[in-house]
């Protein structure tokens, strides 16, 4: 990207951090929320899915507000992960370890999302409780889902911390420290909600 016009790379990188929160991060929260309805039973989840299906212009919303930003964030993210150096072995300070984990969880999430959408959204099957139940009945797929959710929620929570620095919201050392604790709390809560929902799908309808 060295031959690009002066501010192109700056713009691409800032759009990367922005797209991670709006809309990809917001979609993640919505998705976890919908999945959580599974803990109330199959009917509850199927109703939530039906409610989404009834949104007008859904294919366009899906494409422009989820698919495109997600692909953009993922592809630029792979480039970021590739160009980053990794020296946490030498300098094992907490933030440097988080820096590495952010990139590792990003790559895990990238792979996870491809397989996850392949087996659900692009599988041609109707998005019902039963479909997910069939998938998570396979222990390998269940573990794959759990790892994916943990990676995605970590990447989002820690990414929120990073976003606040990239956009000059948290400037001082204390503000960055406090938001780091908050982001880790957010990770634990979101990962818990996600895993709880996955386990709910293991019970038959």
């Amino acid at each position: 990207m060295a031959q690009m016009k002066p501010h192109t790379e700056y713009l691409l990188r800032r759009l990367h951090t922005l797209s991670g929160v709006i809309p990809v991060g917001l979609f993640l929260l919505e998705h976890l929320f919908t999945n959580a309805t599974a803990t109330k039973g199959a009917a509850s989840f199927n109703n939530a899915v039906d409610a989404i299906q009834s949104i007008p212009l859904l294919p366009y919303i899906e494409f422009f507000f989820i698919f495109l930003p997600l692909v953009y964030h993922g592809v630029v993210g792979l480039y970021v992960a590739f160009t980053s150096g990794y020296n946490a072995g030498k300098y094992s300070w907490w933030r440097n370890v988080m820096f590495v984990l952010q990139r590792i969880t990003g790559i895990i999430t990238f792979v996870f999302i491809i397989y996850h959408t392949w087996t659900t959204r692009f599988s041609g099957k109707a998005p019902t409780f039963d479909m997910v139940h069939q998938l998570v009945s396979n222990p390998a797929y269940l573990w794959f889902m759990i790892i994916g959710v943990v990676a995605a929620t970590f990447h989002f929570a820690n990414g929120m911390w990073s976003f606040c620095v990239h956009w000059g919201i948290t400037v001082g050392a204390r503000a960055q420290r406090v938001t780091a604790y908050v982001s880790m709390l957010l990770f634990v809560v979101l990962a818990g909600i996600g895993i709880d929902a996955i386990l709910a799908f293991t019970h038959s309808a």
Binding site: R13, R14, S84, Y91, R95, N96, F99, V165, H166
Partner: peptide, 8 residues
């Protein structure tokens, strides 16, 4: 924009 907040 090249900063990745590793904070070393």
């Amino acid at each position: 924009h090249e900063c990745g907040n590793a904070q070393n």
